[in-house]
Design a protein around this nucleic acid. Structure first.
Length: 576
RNA sequence: GCGCCCGUAGCUCAGUGGAUAGAGCAACCGCCUUCUAAGCGGUAGGUCAAAUGUUCGAAUCAUUUCGGGCGCGCCA
């Protein structure tokens, strides 16, 4: 949190303690006191609800709280004056000198010291983790971008971030994948063999089969079955994972580690975890209740269960399949145990909304291991529906009609994808109208913000050409040469560190794009005022003093924009 | 049936205890002899799904109802 906001909060904590100690008011919940940037800056720069909180708690009515407040507030050096509104808000006006001092911190990129809220802690962010049974499609992009931007945001706010992808390269889905690939290979040799309904029909497996044919020719037509299956499985996985990595790189996403489920299975980490669970009396052999929904082929069977209902889940969960293999959950639990052991201070998972039902059991595992309910945080992304020809497209892997990341990338490019995917709150389901994004750039606000950056850059370049030197800036009295509109944008710029803090704290990167659009709108507006009125232009060669004070905030504006662009992973073009 | 998410302008979405509910797109009217018009200014557009409650104050919290989405076996 930026220090002056904290100072102000502390002031009101102290003030309320004073009022309580003197029995002017009864005890209040201090957490209810808030300091916010005002939505309407005519009423002030910051506001607090303090008086509203204590309103009902007043004991001694003859004590003039406002008078006492006015007296004490003078001790805060950055407050120019306060204004108490009719409805009870206390509005603060910042001193101009202070505002320019904070702007100077932005200009000197000296603001990060206020937002070191991660304090160097190690945080592991697991995201995407799409099954390697096919290329990434539109639904995966959201989680990918969200996880990546959130990670950058954590870095920015002082965390030591580790990006990780969990590859489910094991289990029956992978067997189906290699079977599908083998059938495609056989088809290339004219064999009349069809995929079953639950196998993978996408074109990508035909392409991979062709690769095998080109490389090995008919080698696998008559080989030993066991060897063949193994070969096709590895070949499919290797190729698909490579493609996934390359797709992610297209939109600038890189991981520090890919962890493979098959490696977890091979290690003894599952046994290790189970010893712990057993010691805590959380394992037993039992029969699960009959499921709701479709239960046509269900029959009661005894199996190894995790007593998650004792922890944070509403029922117990299976760990072992009837055929003796571990369930997906057992492996994933072991994987999380492994992450716990790798000395991270926090774990964050980004999951698709289709895994929401799975959250309580994973929290239960972490609680069993760490006895800490905050160690792991699972965030979910709601689905992205694709709109084409004004209609929602139902995507299905089985039908093979999903739109891939590569498709979307080739049509709109990296920046619009990233910007769009991050500008909506992760828990809102979104409709992605591909036609609109392709046809009209305007539909995507990324260009609006980048254009503001390009315009600002052109000013700076021109100033450089004119050899205008910013060093004297702090000697000037800027009040007289900065307009109200410019003051407004400057005040928004100095709130940037607080924005970073809040976005990181609430895990909400979309706050960044909201802020961007606001500040860019202000900038475009000021720019156009200079078109109508020459005296409002940024560069005036006859008045270098005025020019420098304008350029100073424009450069600060660029610094903030570039900083945000970097976090959300888009380009900062100096020309458009 | 149960769990989670959502319902805000014609469309896509912000706002999630605070002041007169916002933006973009679409519509309409203006602004390029100009530091970049991918821009700006203006007009129009709202029962914040509904009801009740909590509160000094509710789009925001609680309860209920309606509507939509995603889940709910030993799949992954």
């Amino acid at each position: 949190m930026d220090n002056y906001i904290k100072n102000l909060l502390d002031f009101f904590y102290d003030f309320s303690s004073f009022l309580e100690n003197e029995n002017y008011i009864s005890a209040i919940d201090k957490n209810q006191i808030s300091i916010d940037y005002s939505s309407n800056n005519k009423q002030g720069d910051l506001a607090t609800n303090f008086l509203l909180i204590i309103k009902r708690k007043i004991i001694k009515k003859n004590f003039d709280i406002e008078k006492e407040l006015n007296k004490r507030i003078k001790s805060i050096e950055f407050i120019d004056r306060i204004l108490i509104s009719k409805n009870g808000f206390i509005n603060f006006f910042l001193k101009n000198d202070f505002v320019f001092k904070k702007l100077n911190e932005i200009y000197n990129k000296d603001f990060l010291k206020y937002i070191n809220y991660g304090d160097g802690k190690k945080i592991n962010v697991e995201f995407v983790s799409a099954n390697p049974t096919g290329p990434l499609h539109i639904a995966h992009i959201r989680g990918a971008v969200f996880g990546d931007v959130l990670s950058s945001l954590y870095s920015k706010t002082g965390y030591n971030v580790f990006r990780e992808y969990y590859v489910n390269d094991s289990g029956s889905q992978i067997d189906k994948l290699s079977n599908s690939l083998f059938k495609r290979y056989l088809q290339l040799f004219g064999e009349k063999i069809e995929l079953t309904e639950d196998e993978y029909p996408g074109q990508y497996l035909i392409d991979i089969a062709k690769k095998i044919k080109n490389q090995d020719h008919d080698k696998w037509l008559n080989s030993k079955e066991e060897e063949t299956i193994k070969y096709f499985k590895n070949f499919a996985l290797e190729n698909i994972i490579l493609e996934i990595k390359s797709d992610l790189e297209k939109i600038n996403i890189k991981f520090d580690k890919f962890t493979y489920e098959s490696d977890i299975e091979k290690s003894n980490i599952i046994d290790e975890l189970f010893k712990i669970l057993d010691k805590k009396d959380l394992l037993y052999n039992g029969v699960l209740e009959k499921p709701k929904g479709d239960d046509s082929d269900w029959e009661p069977r005894e199996q190894l269960l995790f007593k998650s209902s004792n922890l944070l889940d509403n029922e117990d969960r299976a760990l072992k399949k009837l055929n003796g293999e571990w369930t997906y959950f057992a492996n994933d639990a072991a994987y999380h145990f492994d992450k716990c052991k790798r000395s991270f201070d926090r774990l964050v998972n980004i999951w698709g909304s289709d895994h929401i039902g799975y959250i309580p059991r994973m929290y239960s595992i972490i609680k069993a291991i760490k006895n800490d309910e905050t160690y792991l945080k699972i965030l979910t992304c709601q689905i992205v529906s694709l709109i084409q020809n004004k209609q929602k497209i139902k995507m299905s892997k089985r039908l093979g009609n999903f739109v891939t990341l590569a498709d979307v990338y080739s049509k709109v490019g990296k920046d619009p994808i990233r910007y769009y995917m991050i500008s909506t709150k992760n828990e809102t389901a979104i409709d992605f109208d591909l036609d609109a994004v392709i046809e009209k750039n305007k539909e995507n606000k990324v260009f609006y913000c980048q254009y503001a950056y390009a315009r600002a850059s052109s000013i700076i370049n021109k100033a450089n050409e004119l050899n205008i030197n910013f060093d004297d800036y702090n000697n000037y009295n800027n009040k007289e040469i900065i307009s109200d509109e410019e003051m407004k944008i400057i005040k928004k710029l100095i709130s940037y560190p607080y924005l970073l803090y809040q976005s990181s704290y609430y895990n909400e990167p979309h706050r960044l794009t909201n802020y961007l659009e606001e500040v860019c709108s202000d900038f475009h507006s000021i720019w156009n005022k200079g078109k109508d009125n020459e005296s409002l232009r940024f560069i005036d060669e006859k008045n270098i003093k005025k020019t420098i004070s304008k350029i100073f905030w424009i450069e600060s504006f660029r610094i903030v924009l570039k900083d945000i662009f970097l976090i959300i992973g888009i380009n900062a073009p100096e020309k458009m």
